[in-house]
Write a protein that binds this DNA or RNA. Structure first.
Lengths: 213, 213
DNA sequence: CCAAAAGTGTTGGCTGTACACCCATGT
DNA sequence: ACATGGGTGTACAGCCAACACTTTTGG
């Protein structure tokens, strides 16, 4: 049996944020072939000796400067290009204010509304749609949003994040009741008056890591 | 930039069934090194030119003779061995009566209770535990069990399958109410008296493919 | 004083759960 | 006749959804 050459394995990361009241994704403008000038998700070949999670974590940090955020494996594709490459996709949630986007000459990274995507290289739109579906789903039974907002935030901010992701309006009283009785938040005691009129109670997540209800 | 050799990519399949009132997994006894004489999940290298789903489908058919059953991607591991191989795991549900286990000299395939696993090669126990958790979870909101039973079955058989998987007892009246009001089953009109006393109404799944409630 | 967001309870419907008995059949 | 599994209804509790007004503050 002749040793088989092995497969090309790549890691992609779908990095979501909520900005301007909508769900946005971090995309990169390619300056090299193939798909020069097309947008695509950040990612790259899996290098010798690193694990998938390490690769995804590193890519996320390169693009945003962030390390301790929600990051989870999404799905593994073998049909995104026609070379049969194996692409392991991850997804992450970040706070737009704490993210510092990489500045490169070759690749322009920027946020894009997840609802209206430009033409994307390598069927990356399928990957994003799948990630968005998973996100909407997880809102219902996990604390994933812990890394979408600053460490301390108001209930209104949290509600706006939920509304942006689900693209629907939620009832304020029901939202507050539900979210507070879950016991995943704790009030800080402080109040914030950032741009608002009446200062609001600040909360933080008890756990800054994935928890399911 | 020197071309990188690529990675070893393998596909594993966790094949579940319910037999003897318990959840069981199909394991293979290895007759070659490494891990000679240890049990492991069926699987193999991903060969040139085939997609992941094709590879998993083929492996499933080789082991059980079955094609049109529930089969879904589970997770992708990069740390099961210490060579950094990429292992894409799938999981499936089959009816033990319709499965015809492969007979080989080198590899002995057989069913094993998922609750008490023997020592397994390559951390395959982690893979099985993850698959079992996913299965228990999916019972609640999908029709995955459509390929666990013969095409026509009684509500008691279905309930027994649920009970085996969840390892808990369910109330008969509540189970029947819940499952029938979901609208995923249809009565066939026929009745069966297989080994039973009073012949029971037979049902079938309306859809023999994954549906979420 | 006005605009903007914070904060707060109650009701009705629905869903899920607990619970026990009679019936039809095969042996 | 008896043992075995098939089949059925009700009552209570907890959960979710609908719904509107007052308060505080900044400008």
């Amino acid at each position: 049996m002749a040793p088989d050459p092995g497969r090309t394995v790549a890691v992609l990361v779908v990095i979501f944020t909520v900005r301007d009241g909508e769900l946005q994704v971090l995309l990169i403008k390619r300056s090299a072939e193939p798909f020069k000038d097309a947008w695509s998700l950040p990612g790259g070949r899996l290098t010798e000796g690193s694990s998938l999670l390490e690769a995804a974590t590193r890519r996320l940090e390169i693009e945003t400067g962030l390390k301790d955020v929600f990051l989870e494996q999404l799905y593994t594709f073998s049909d995104l290009d026609d070379q049969g490459s194996i692409v392991v996709a991850y997804w992450a949630l970040v706070d737009p204010a704490s993210a510092t986007l990489a500045r490169r000459d070759e690749w322009q990274p920027d946020w894009h509304p997840a609802a209206v995507l430009p033409d994307l290289a390598f069927h990356n739109d399928r990957v994003i749609d799948l990630a968005a579906a998973r996100l909407r789903n997880k809102l219902a039974y996990s604390n994933v949003t812990y890394s979408l907002l600053p460490e301390e935030f108001t209930l209104s901010q949290l509600q706006q994040a939920y509304e942006a992701i689900l693209s629907l309006q939620l009832d304020k009283r029901n939202f507050r009741k539900r979210i507070t009785t879950l016991g995943i938040l704790e009030p800080t005691g402080k109040r914030a008056s950032v741009g608002r009129h009446r200062p609001a109670q600040l909360y933080r997540f008890r756990e800054r890591r994935p928890v399911v209800f």
